[in-house]
Write a protein that binds this DNA or RNA. Structure first.
Length: 475
RNA sequence: UCUUCCUUAGCUCAGUUGGUUAGAGCACCUGACUGUUAAUCAGGGGGUCGCUGGUUCAAGUCCAGCAGGGAGAGCCA
């Protein structure tokens, strides 16, 4: 039976027989194999003391898959506590060194690795990133499960085009070169697979609200699609989103949930991915060595994560945020590109100032002007603002967006009319306000943005296995 | 989509005011090597300078267009 390398390295046991299987990271001196099986970032050293089989030694190439039988002993050399003395070496799959790009001493860039995303799992960086990504996903389910939330699967194909969260990808089986048309020349979607026009979902929120109004506490966690032509280090066309929705919660409850949730997830990774985080922290330090000193992080990755777990997020209203910006040095020195006044949407430069310069920690901004927020957010008593909340994270920007929902039917209908959202098509959503409506609140967390924050990676394309972005759907 | 930078060997990069046969480190190949740690040592092979067109006696170098990529912005998670 195969033993995982993680179990060997983290155990104090010695002098026992094992079978290990993994991939060669390097082969030194025709004698020492650094073997990795993905269970942990570190390699185990396999020692071959019999050099008589030259053909075998020749085939122990970087990247080759091996099965090793041997004995775990205290290492005879420095640099590792234990090593495996091989008694039998089988080559499961060779790896032509002339073809395989990931040689031990190569220093491939993240951009280059993105082009060979099918192979980049085999590097330390991506091994660490995807183990951490898994821990984040698992701890999200664990958090909500422990709190009694119901994990809800909302549809990926949706007929609703009123979610208002961005451009959508059309889903159709109609022939694109000659679709059926109505008399007025428009495409006849009654002939389409679902009998109507359908798209990939941009959010499961509206459906989650319906379930919350019966099950009480639900969350979604699934893929989300936006057809925007966004070319940035923090946007994907296909990404994963977590959307809790809770009946009877108000905005304060919503903020408390979001903050507790983020701290729980970070704590879980701190406790369960120590080796990966230590490696990612070193990677970040090395990357930032190439930047000017004033652009480097003030805290190391682990310091930052511990700080976020141990300190309350700053909570301010939109109106207070505008006041802070108006009194800020960059505003008074006219260093902001965009103007600041009550009613504007906060720009990246404003968010970055608040989070990275002024408060130096995650900030929850609440009560935005109603005109810059979605129709479903609850109108405040002032008639000007809505019970919205965005969590802004250092280096990432908006990581969570949420609100208390408008539960009053007349107010909701009035808001939808103002924003030209067809009420008839949304009868099913409005029914939740007609039949036993109740205050409720929820938020959406960009999963990959959370992975960015925790791993210290800087491009969102490097924290999802196969990124989909405008002009790119390889693999 | 906008602004800006980049594209030279498998990878990471250098290449001066345009001027002989385009360089380095690592990787790779051959050989040596049984206590190495990104092993080391000796030798060797490897280039359509992103693509297309232009200027010039002469273009990796200058100009234009296109493609791909990075960073920033908008949109947002």
């Amino acid at each position: 039976m195969r033993t995982k390398i993680k179990d060997i390295l983290l155990s104090d046991k010695l002098d026992y027989e094992v079978v290990v299987k993994g991939w060669v990271r390097s082969f030194r001196n025709n004698q020492f194999i650094a073997l990795n099986d993905g269970s942990i970032i570190d390699n185990v050293q396999v020692v071959i003391n019999d050099n008589s089989d030259e053909a075998l030694l020749k085939n122990i190439q970087t990247g080759a898959a091996l099965s090793i039988e041997g004995k775990v002993i205290a290492s005879q050399g420095k640099g590792q506590k234990v090593e495996i003395v091989a008694t039998k070496v089988d080559i499961l799959g060779g790896c032509d060194p002339e073809q395989f790009p990931l040689q031990a001493k190569n220093r491939p860039s993240l951009e280059y690795l993105r082009e060979i995303a099918h192979l980049r799992f085999r590097t330390n960086v991506f091994g660490a990133v995807f183990r951490v990504r898994n821990s984040i996903a698992f701890s999200i389910h664990k958090f909500f499960n422990e709190k009694g939330f119901v994990y809800l699967h909302t549809p990926i194909v949706t007929a609703s085009d009123a979610e208002g969260a961005g451009e959508m990808f059309r889903v159709t089986t109609l022939p694109f070169d000659n679709p059926p048309r109505k008399e007025d020349g428009t495409i006849d979607f009654s002939e389409d697979f679902f009998g109507k026009s359908t798209n990939l979902t941009v959010s499961g929120q509206l459906e989650a609200e319906l379930a919350a109004m019966a099950l009480g506490e639900v969350y979604t966690f699934g893929p989300t699609f936006r057809a925007e032509n966004s070319n940035t280090a923090r946007h994907l066309a296909e990404f994963w989103m977590v959307e809790p929705e809770v009946a009877f919660n108000d905005l304060q409850d919503n903020m408390n949930l979001a903050e507790e949730f983020m701290q729980y997830v970070i704590k879980y990774v701190l406790d369960n991915n120590k080796e990966d985080l230590a490696f990612l922290q070193e990677r970040l330090i090395n990357e930032e060595k190439q930047k000017p000193a004033n652009e480097r992080s003030e805290m190391t990755l682990l310091e930052k994560l511990n700080f976020v777990v141990e300190n309350k997020f700053e909570r301010i209203t939109y109106t207070e945020a505008i006041d802070i910006l108006l009194q800020s040095k960059p505003y008074q020195k006219k260093q902001f590109k965009y103007e600041v006044s009550w009613g504007i949407d906060l720009q990246s430069e404003h968010e970055r100032f608040l989070v990275e310069k002024h408060f130096k920690k995650p900030v929850i901004v609440t009560d935005y002007p109603k005109d810059i927020k979605a129709f479903y957010m609850r109108l405040n008593d002032d008639g000007k603002t809505v019970a919205a909340m965005d969590i802004l994270a250092p280096g990432i920007g908006e990581i969570v967006g949420g609100s208390q929902r408008e539960e009053r039917l007349e107010v909701l209908e009035s808001r939808m009319n103002d924003m030209h959202i067809p009420l008839e098509e949304m009868y099913w959503y409005l029914d939740s306000r007609r039949f036993g409506t109740a205050p409720h609140a929820g938020f959406g967390l960009g999963f990959e943005r959370m992975v960015l924050f925790i791993t210290g990676m800087t491009n969102i394309r490097d924290v999802i296995p196969f990124p989909r972005t405008p002009g790119n759907a390889a693999f």
